[in-house]
Computed example of a mutant assay.
Amino acid sequence: MPPLTPFTSHLLALLFSSSYVGSIYVARSARTRLTSSNAGSRDDPPVIRARLIAATLTSAFNCVVLYVVVARSDYPLPWNATLAMLGVSWPATILSCLQTPVLFLGPLYASFVASTLPGQAHYSVKRDFSNVFCTWIGFRNYLWGPLTEEIVFRACVLAVYALCSARRGMMIAFAPLMFGLAHVHHAWDTYTRGGRTTAALKRALISTLFQAAYTTLFGAHASFLFLRTSSLLPPLTAHIFCNIMGIPQLGYELRRTPAYRTSIQVAYVLGIVGFAGTLVPWTAVPAGGEESLYWRAPEMFARFFGA
């Protein structure tokens, strides 16, 4: 028998996700409030710092909960197995960390022809790097936010589902829903910052539904990378890269450089084709290497289950 039942795994996954989201509302300093300026918004540095502390403590708490679950199970695994389940390891191939950027071949090429990539004529270190990454917003969006979210929504959530011998197809399809729903709380901030009007409510609903759908799709891809490699690094680098790139803006890019309209469209198509073509081979274990711990699910912990 597996250490956990499906019901217990669902409860633990709900605990992990709800505690992560709920923690940012526990401290008064982490809550947003409506003001005439940026003060009190989710992008206000004091609010960001308070929420980062909350996310860090919650991530650590969830990792401890996972360790306790493993240690107290009928078939306890050694303590370092908890680290393995959390993906604290290097992937078998660095290509697994480069697979997601292939999808953005179109936007990258459009930036290249517009000379906005690093080192090109229209790139500004101050405007495009310092003012973007060297801020509290940048630290949250491009480092600590992705790191804590991947620890909780990928490593911890997928670990408890693996411990109930869930099929990997189910984990790829279902677990990301937790990640998508975790972003729904942004609707309240959008609504309040918009003046709590009917128009603000519509904007909040539309933007939140889009964000939930987008993050759920990304969550499925990140879950695939984690299960395929048993390493947190590939989904983490994918998360950071996607946050940096944002949603592709094909229409804007075609208007910005109309002379390259056809080549940009071709680059977009090649990116999609390349992404699909590299998804499996670039995440495969090289010949002679050890197969992913998670990709063997549900047989991965069979020797500990008494099978």
Rank of each mutant, 00 (worst) to 15 (best):
A166T: 11
C63A: 15
L181N: 00
G271I: 06
S124A: 08
P107M: 11
Y75S: 14
G138L: 04
Y214R: 08
P3F: 02
P6D: 02
V184G: 02
A155C: 13
A121N: 13
D74S: 11
A182S: 13
S89K: 15
A81H: 12
Y123T: 02
A27R: 13
D44I: 07
T198Y: 04
L108H: 05
I264G: 08
V113T: 04
M170W: 14
A110F: 09
F174M: 08
C164Y: 01
L209A: 15
G40C: 10
W90F: 14
R256P: 04
R140A: 10
H183D: 08
Y252H: 13
S41D: 08
V125T: 12
C97H: 05
S89N: 13
T58W: 02
A284Q: 13
L236I: 06
L227C: 00
S263M: 06
L236Q: 06
V21S: 06
A204E: 04
E150A: 09
T283V: 09
H10I: 13
Y109T: 07
F210I: 13
L225F: 10
R140W: 03
G274D: 04
L105P: 02
G251Y: 12
L254H: 07
R168L: 07
D128H: 10
Y268F: 15
G289D: 06
V68I: 12
N131L: 06
T198P: 00
L117I: 04
G106Y: 09
L232Q: 06
L34T: 05
M170R: 10
P91N: 04
P235S: 03
V285G: 01
T116F: 04
S37V: 05
L11K: 00
